[in-house]
Simulated assay, not measured.
Amino acid sequence: MKKKGSTRFIVLLIGLFYIIVNCCLLGSQKTLAYSNLSKDKEKVIYLTFDDGPSVLTDKVLDILDENNVKATFFLIGNQIKGQEAVVKRIYDEGHSMGLHTYTHTYKKIYSSRKAFIDEMLQTQDEINSLTGIKPTIIRFPFGSRKHLNGPFLEQLHSCNFKIYDWNAIMSDGVNFRTPTEQLYREATKTTITEHPIILLMHCDYMHKNTCKVLPRVIKFYKDNGYEFKIINDVTPENYFPIKK
């Protein structure tokens, strides 16, 4: 009887040992799964500004410099004259520049694929003459939706262009008088679930409220652990779904 009791005790110890080992392994797997989930949802934001350069773009650059943050500027070619120093400053301070057509005139730029590409190339030449670089990242005025299809995408890629729309937006482009509180809510709304976040803002001469709210927007994303990045020619494209 004593031998059977000892055997049962040993069996119980072995069973307890396996339970402890399995619990430890399960805990490790949960930790690994959490790490992978965190990596998949990496917190990255791209601050992007359309419709520059302008006198107000300088103010935006001041704010970015004060907060040690870099951004991406999609420039309109015919606004560069008189704002050459701003374009050089964007480049010198390590920000990224993209193409936003030459005229931003809806009927003209969307009259044909050739007209659209010619305007991008013209703006590219303007930037190149000032900085020595030829940006290849582009943004469609008013977004690529309704304008981009498979063949056009291939044509743009053949010109080495890469397209970037957005998944977060301020309404400053619709109404430059939009109150700062509304702009802040739009830029930081918790319904933004796509990552990375590409936030569209504007920096033409009338967008004073954008400048007023920008420091708060930057602080919000810093406080929430986001990394600020610039869009360049190695950034994965991000454009609205193409209808077949």
Rank of each mutant, 00 (worst) to 15 (best):
Y239D: 09
L156N: 03
T190G: 07
V11W: 15
I10Q: 02
S111L: 14
S129A: 07
R89E: 01
S6M: 14
I138Y: 13
W166D: 02
P179F: 10
L156Q: 05
T7C: 10
V213N: 05
I90H: 14
K134D: 08
G52Y: 14
G173V: 07
Q182A: 07
Y239G: 01
I76E: 11
H100D: 02
D204P: 10
Q83H: 15
G225R: 01
K4F: 11
H207Q: 13
L56N: 07
Y226P: 02
E227Y: 12
D118W: 00
K41R: 14
I20P: 10
S129R: 14
Y102S: 01
D50C: 04
I198P: 07
K189C: 13
F228R: 03
E194L: 01
V213K: 02
Y184M: 10
S129P: 11
S54N: 07
I218E: 02
I117V: 08
F17C: 15
S35M: 13
I109F: 13
L99G: 10
N78P: 08
T210R: 06
I117G: 13
L75D: 09
H100N: 05
H147L: 05
I90A: 09
I230M: 07
K146V: 07
T235Y: 00
P135A: 14
F161N: 05
R145F: 06
C211D: 03
I45P: 01
M170Y: 00
I133A: 05
T193E: 04
F140N: 05
N175D: 12
L32V: 00
I197R: 00
S28P: 02
K229D: 01
E126Y: 13
V234N: 04
N22R: 14
R216N: 06
L199Q: 13
N78I: 04
L25W: 15
G52W: 11
I242G: 05
T191M: 02
Y102I: 03
L75W: 11
M201N: 03
F74I: 00
V87I: 05
K162Y: 13
E93V: 06
S38H: 00
L64C: 04
S171T: 12
G143I: 04
S111I: 12
D65W: 09
F74P: 02
V87D: 04
V86D: 11
V87H: 14
F142T: 00
T178E: 12
S6F: 11
N224K: 04
S54C: 06
F228W: 11
G225N: 00
K243V: 12
L13F: 04
G5D: 10
L199I: 02
T191Y: 06
E84W: 10
K212L: 11
T48H: 00
H95W: 07
G15R: 10
I137Y: 08
N160F: 12
V213E: 02
Y91Q: 10
L26P: 08
G77W: 10
I45H: 01
R139I: 06
R139E: 06
V69Q: 02
V217F: 06
G132P: 12
D223T: 05
K108H: 03
E126W: 03
I137E: 07
R177Y: 13
T193K: 11
I163P: 01
F73H: 13
T101Y: 10
L130A: 05
Y102A: 00
K108Q: 13
I90K: 03
C23K: 03
L61N: 11
Y34A: 15
K88Q: 15
V174H: 04
Q124N: 12
F142D: 09
T57A: 09
H157S: 08
V60I: 15
T131W: 10
H195T: 15
